[in-house]
Design a protein around this nucleic acid. Structure first.
Lengths: 235, 235
DNA sequence: TACCATTTATATGTAATACATAATAAACAT
DNA sequence: ATGTTTATTATGTATTACATATAAATGGTA
């Protein structure tokens, strides 16, 4: 289909809006021309002329691509292709005050799934230096266990975040970063059952020991136990 | 800050654009008024008047919210709050031809993590009817194993998708739906090592048996074996 | 009264134009 | 050759006008 025919075709019977078509056409364009990150795309007016629609429509279509992180607009320079951080986009709608309860609970569950499932990748990629860092984190939060219930939330986050780091999976790390703020909300909302038993079966220290001497299989099961409280609040 | 002062303040020294401010202001508004799904928000012109900016700016701000799924626009009716499908948003940028290799590989890894980690939720929520359905799926793909390598990709998807269903976690299911199209690409690209051994250690049938008589722990480890080929292509 | 077809009003969708702003590129002066 | 000023250019914002879809009002018929 010739570009300039988009509008004509649109005038006929159809369901999607003009902007929808233009947006799809633009994505096609990016693929076809095999544009890599950093390449610039035509100016708004050029596109408007080529596709035979107003600049208004072009701008709205470009804006959509911008919101999902496919392009970036710079004054005078035009728009350039960018590598989208797919989870960053998601963050926009991850507002605890807007999301419904089911979704929030689902996100919370997702965290548990991830931390148990990533065992193999941790073992595959962990370095001696990682072990050192983990031990340092552990040494900071375990000793002063005077009040067993009141463990520092910061250390909790530091420990588990480090595990995500070790996987070396950037997408996974981004995902976790997104989920973190949610948990604070979830914990305080009446969404989950009340805490039944704040004692954890497997400690952070126990997990590190397994990382040093154990296997992915052992680690998965240990992590499952470590997260027992969270599970018991769900089930 | 009075709404009508947004623009005035913008005129001073600042970094973010006018639309940025308006967008943030709108999100605030949604929270403050505790608007629930289905509620309508003020008309574009009302907002423009209230905030003292042009309809153009309002429209762009609203569009952003629309792209991330927070609102939906209906002619004559105005915009209504919607419960965002957070993963659906992500799908827009999940284009294999645009994403870089690292991200693609990361997504592939994420699948393995999820399927191993979700064992507890499957066991918690599986019903006898689910078992029946799984057995039916299995009976269809296992018998005619004349060519062991050429198992139907459809059955493969059907089986694993059913597992996601059983978790009852809608977000998780949406996530899987997003990832599926990627795999086809990943498998054919030179991104992963060549297939070393197409024989699977644990069959679908074996997994179902464990779901009937085993434990989450057994299932996790069996699934890890079942996915052995995928892992060996990564490591 | 209830139901269906038609008209009307309204809010979003698209278009066109003008000007503001920022960043690059060109021109200039030192 | 280098730093400063000026011009140019493409996006950002504003304004106005009209198109289009649809909810709501209107009116007619059984």
């Amino acid at each position: 289909m010739a570009l300039s025919e988009i509008k004509r075709e649109h005038t006929g019977s159809n369901t999607s809006s003009l902007v929808d078509k233009v947006e799809a056409r633009l994505v096609e364009l990016l693929q076809q021309r095999k544009l890599k990150v950093g390449d610039v795309i035509p100016k708004e007016m050029e596109l408007a002329d080529t596709l035979g629609v107003s600049r208004t429509v072009i701008r709205e279509a470009l804006l959509r691509l911008r919101v999902v992180g496919l392009i970036e607009s710079k004054k005078k320079k035009g728009s350039v292709i960018t590598s989208p951080d797919i989870f960053n986009v998601m963050g926009k709608s991850l507002n605890p005050y807007i999301l419904d309860q089911d979704t929030l609970k689902g996100m919370f569950e997702l965290r548990l799934i991830l931390e148990i499932g990533m065992a193999d990748f941790i073992f595959q990629r962990i370095t001696p230096d990682d072990i050192l860092q983990l031990n340092e984190i552990v040494s900071k939060d375990e000793p002063e266990a005077t009040a067993p219930h009141v463990f520092s939330i910061d250390h909790e986050i530091a420990f588990h975040s480090k595990l995500y780091d070790i996987t070396g999976n950037q997408s996974l790390k981004n995902f976790q970063k997104l989920l973190l703020p949610l948990f604070d909300y979830v914990h305080h909302s009446g969404l989950l059952k009340i805490q039944v038993d704040s004692r954890r079966f497997v400690s952070h220290k126990g997990l590190v020991d397994i990382l040093e001497n154990g296997s992915p299989e052992l680690f998965r099961n240990a992590m499952r136990n470590h997260l027992e409280n969270h599970f018991s609040r769900l089930f």
